[in-house]
């Protein structure tokens, strides 16, 4: 019984560390985004994604960073991916709506 408890605790500790690592990269990326360091934030978020973490928040924040660099098409794809994971999220939809509005305006100006 003691062994089982010990192993369970050990597994929980490992899982906790993994989650913490993801959260630290993710949280750090958010700090970078607040500072407008888009390139570095993309690097951190890609790293978090490579670690196997795929969440609506990650896609949304990555899209924001891509928008910051003017990569609107890639940003749109990331917002769409975020919406697939969290279709009811109002904030992601708002972000995507604003991006699409800008794209429409650009297209109108080019006509």
């Amino acid at each position: 019984m003691k062994k089982i408890i010990f192993l369970t605790l050990f597994a929980a500790l490992l899982a906790g560390c993994a989650v913490h690592r993801y959260h630290s990269e993710f949280a750090f990326a958010n700090k970078l985004l607040q500072e407008g360091l888009w390139q570095e934030a993309i690097f951190r978020l890609e790293k978090a994604r490579a670690a196997g973490n795929d969440s609506a928040a990650l896609h949304n924040n990555l899209a924001v960073a891509l928008e910051g660099l003017g990569r609107a098409d890639e940003a749109e794809r990331e917002y769409q991916a975020a919406l697939k994971l969290a279709p009811a999220n109002v904030q992601i939809r708002l972000n995507l709506d604003k991006l699409k509005k800008n794209q429409r305006k650009d297209a109108d100006e080019k006509k």
Binding site: A27, N30, L33, A57, N60, N61, V64, I92, N95, K98
Partner: peptide, 9 residues
């Protein structure tokens, strides 16, 4: 400058 929302958690 335009506002966007980050999901922080």
């Amino acid at each position: 400058l335009q506002e966007r929302f980050l999901i922080t958690r």
